[in-house]
Amino acid sequence: MFKPTLFVLCLFPIVWLLWRESMGQLGANPIEAMIRELGLWALRLLLLTLCVTPIRQLLQWHALIRVRRMLGLYCFFYAVSHVVSYLWLDQSFDVGDIINDIIKRPFITVGFLSFVLLIPLAITSSNRMIQRLGGKQWRQLHRLVYLIGILSVLHFWWMAESKSRLAEPWLYVVALAILLAMRIPLTRLFLKPPAR
């Protein structure tokens, strides 16, 4: 039951968002509120995906691996919604303006990079693709997720920096730093559960 429950839970943010939008509860600029919240959930799901392996190791909860792909794809789903809302509702698909935005605003540049890098990971998430690539190459490719994590947090940081409102991004910097540190072999040595 764990996986179906999690599946429904992950849908909740977008359902809740669309519901508030339809009720006019997103404030004076609902489009801006929507773009922001979708981006925030993309980042949250990215970090949740990165939690799977450390938790699995620490708690010896191996079945957890079964939800990793789902969390990763949900991250992609929210990222796509975030980016499509931006392209459509914010920029009305004006290619020139969009290219300009990507070039001129560093926070958009890194958000764009992070999104582009997410695409191959989503495409190669199926069992068939894993088989076709072979385990080793697949794993190597999916190490990109660490870079994506850094770029996404930087995207958030730079966006917030221009308004000197960094309390929230700090939270994500710390969370990401911990999650990345747990990947360092030396840290893993210390975190190994006692032999039984």
């Binding site: 004076a28 600029n29 801006e32 935005d101 605003r105």
Partner: peptide, 12 residues
């Protein structure tokens, strides 16, 4: 310097 001024969102 960081964004276009060609368009605007009229609130609402």
């Amino acid at each position: 310097p960081r964004w276009s001024q060609k368009k605007e969102r009229r609130i609402g």
